[in-house]
Design a protein around this nucleic acid. Sequence first.
DNA 1: ACCCAGGGTCATA
DNA 2: TATGACCATGGG
Length: 221
Amino acid sequence: MSHGGAMELYQVLLAAYGRQKWWPADSALAMMAGAILVQNTAWTGAARAVQRLAEAGLLEAAALRQVDDERLWERIRPAGYFRVKGQRLRALATFLADYGDNCQRLFRLETTELRNALLKVHGIGKETADSIVCYGGGRAIFVVDAYTRRLFHRLGWSSAKADYDQLQQLVMGTVPPEADMLAEFHALIVRHAKNHCRSKPLCHGCPVVFCPGHSFPQGRE
DNA sequence: ACCCAGGGTCATA
DNA sequence: TATGACCATGGG
């Protein structure tokens, strides 16, 4: 089931969980900052950090460029890796200066150009870039993450260590390139993964009924 | 006390 | 190309 399977999975997840509200953010810069702050970190901490930035008036590119390290670190501490992420937020703000600190102007770039431009920013890798392209720019792109890798592997759709581009192609090569659907698909995969945290019975009411085994021996899916 | 969370970079082989 | 170390906080 390597073709059409992706579409079927999407429909099953959508029926099970409904539409997710992604990406929660009050502005384009808040969304991009959140994408950096959430890297390898629970969303609750990243959201708290974004809120604290907003309260300090730091969700402006110019302000992010000027604020000193200690002030910045104190705001984003709940997201973890605060020194690294502080530097990455600065790199983003510096990058935005090339577009007059205007995110909408950045988002006018053609999809591939936008992605490549973001990838040049220190601290923005493929997943973060695609998240911004998808949820910030509203473009048709599928975001791959650890959940996606795990789920697709469990479904027998990919090898254990398929790389990012392969997994992305697995979806984008087989489903219609609709921005809203691809955005929803990734959000649903994350939603599904959260449903199977280790504190809950595995696969109790699991909507992905075509999972091989259906009960996952190694724990979470 | 341990594990993991909506990654990415850097040094090393 | 491909591993491993490192970054840090918070909740289960």
